[in-house]
Nucleic acid binder design. Structure first.
Length: 321
DNA sequence: CGAGTTTGACCGGCGC
DNA sequence: GCGCCGGTCAAACTCG
């Protein structure tokens, strides 16, 4: 009965960032035109305008989805208030089994295991292609957030990412750009497929952990649960100096990664092209805005980084010519 | 040979 | 207090 978390999260992901991201992308494309455009051929202009068109289309789609979700939220709230009224009028019924479960979830318990399993249930009920941050970032509209165990909201930030893989792909690898070291694997009770445990190995002191397990309902979907925040820049940012064209593109497109990056992640994960699991985008990065902001600030203030970025971009442009 | 993975053992939290 | 279960450790193993 607890649908609030995924509904709200979906709203968070869908309502705001896409538009910001669209603008950022547009500006990026336009600025690329100004800086590099002189050398661009007419075919490139066409492809860029096609991209802008595509952006418009996706934006409209997002808008539509947002409206649907808003409607769903309203319906949910109405239903919920009706149910509350009903329970108030018929307190006797509150002792049946279903309500016991409800009470357990609502009163909830500082019990770690319980809260986790309820999270899993929510996710299983939700659209598997929706990225669900099961943590404090998602702003709940009702009192649910207040009832969440304090430790959950204070402790390590937890985000969840769904990645569709090819049916034949049995590995538990979610490529997000970070370096992970597997330190364990376990078959859990609620899911026959094994759960893999990873630690971030990019920086020895990085506390971030990742759990990857196949969805119970759809074995082709990998559920990656990230815990904690990276205390180092995204590896792809480090690679920009080596001229990795894709990374340059992605990162240069996000002068403020906070607003733009989540949308990139969302779109890639949602799109049907996720049959290509090779996207190198970090699905989590942005659960911690302050961290990312800090990283972005330090990077943009670093003259050598800027120089390297400029060199990489100009090198790429020259290479194209 | 070093780095990464596998896998059984162990530990601690939780429910009964 | 005991058993279950998820999470972690660490020795053995694999791979480049």
């Amino acid at each position: 009965m607890d649908y609030s978390s995924w509904i709200n999260t979906s709203l968070d992901l869908n309502i705001n960032p896409p538009r910001v991201h669209e603008e950022v992308l547009k500006k990026e494309i336009e600025s690329n035109f100004f800086s590099l455009g002189m050398r661009m051929s007419s075919t490139k202009e066409e492809s860029t305008s096609a991209l802008v068109e595509e952006l418009k289309r996706v934006s409209a789609e997002n808008k539509k989805l947002t409206e649907m979700l808003t409607e769903m939220c309203e319906n949910y709230n109405t239903l919920r208030s009706n149910w509350m009224d009903y329970m108030r009028k018929n307190p006797d019924n509150s002792n049946n089994n279903n309500n016991k479960d409800k009470d357990q979830q609502l009163n909830s318990s500082s019990k770690k295991r319980k809260s986790e399993s309820s999270n899993n249930n929510n996710n299983n009920n939700s659209n598997p292609m929706v990225i669900n941050n099961g943590n404090s970032e998602s702003s709940s509209t009702d009192e649910e957030s207040c009832k969440k165990p304090r430790e959950e909201t204070i402790k390590a930030k937890i985000s969840r990412v769904y990645v569709r893989t090819e049916g034949s792909d049995t590995s538990l690898i979610v490529k997000d750009g970070y370096q992970w070291r597997k330190y364990g694997q376990k078959v859990t009770r609620d899911n026959p497929s094994p759960r893999a445990y990873f630690k971030c190995s990019f920086a020895p002191s990085c506390p971030v952990k990742k759990k990857v397990q196949r969805s119970v309902e759809d074995q082709s979907i990998l559920v990656a649960t990230y815990e904690g925040e990276h205390n180092h820049p995204h590896p792809s940012q480090m690679e920009t100096t080596s001229g990795s064209s894709r990374c340059v593109t992605l990162n240069s497109a996000c002068p403020t990664p906070i607003s733009s990056a989540p949308t990139v992640t969302l779109d890639l994960t949602k799109s049907k092209s996720t049959n290509q699991p090779k996207n190198n985008v970090n699905p989590k990065i942005f659960s911690s805005e302050s961290l990312v902001e800090q990283m972005a600030n330090s990077l943009t203030k670093d003259p050598s980084f800027r120089a390297a970025l400029v060199a990489a971009i100009s090198g790429r442009a020259l290479h194209k010519n």
